[in-house]
Design a protein around this nucleic acid. Structure first.
Lengths: 107, 107
DNA sequence: TTATATAATTGTAATATTGCAATATTACTT
DNA sequence: AAGTAATATTGCAATATTACAATTATATAA
């Protein structure tokens, strides 16, 4: 085989995995960090900042966006990427509730 | 190319990505959840519970273990897997501090 | 020692991800 | 309309991940 057997897990677990996948690549963490640090909205600056090609950054942005973590505003010919903070906090509380439910019973 | 260019990111960002990767597969989330729910330590029960083959579970356990999230005690011929709660909490606070530092300045 | 049970490792196939060059699209500008 | 700048898409190669069958290692039990 090789592909993930997504059908055997609950909806919420698959959702958590999709969220975690956003953070599972350093380029995407860097992009999120960079966007959040900018005073004004940014666009192609990410390419210069991170050191990957424009298509590669664009691809990572798509992954982040597909998870709902971005808002984009058009500003002339460029796109202003911003964080969707509500969704971000949703992620945070999902993970925290998972972590907080987790205890250890032995060892 | 195809491989991740890990050298262009900071140590802490790469570390976060490695942690996130543990949670980036539903099987691993399920395993963590299952281990934490058990009253007593378990072993091969994970295989029955989750519905993946023994080598596949073993492989996922290795990923979780390599991230430092497990403690293993030998109990007879089987291994008792438990969560390393200290490390788990370390993860939680690392992610929370990332989330909390993240703000949005536009849109 | 031999048998049995549990878990790790190896080998391999299928699929996914990462990265970039080339190209296409989109929106402004002249 | 033609040119330009910014971003997305496509196609492809390299690498990584996922999954399992077969095998191996380890530990107890007979």
């Amino acid at each position: 085989m090789g592909a993930s057997k997504l059908n055997i897990y609950s909806e919420s677990i698959n959702k958590m995995a999709i969220i975690a996948k956003v953070f599972a690549h350093p380029a995407r963490i860097s992009i999120l960090q960079f966007i959040s640090k900018q005073k004004s909205c940014i666009c192609n600056d990410i390419v210069d900042e991170i050191g990957l090609s424009q298509p590669t950054i664009s691809q990572h942005l798509k992954v982040i966006n597909d998870a709902g973590l971005l808002k984009g505003n058009f500003e002339g010919k460029s796109i202003c990427y911003c964080l969707n903070l509500e969704r971000f906090q949703e992620f945070q509380s999902l993970f925290n509730s998972f972590f907080n439910k987790t205890t250890s019973n032995c060892c």
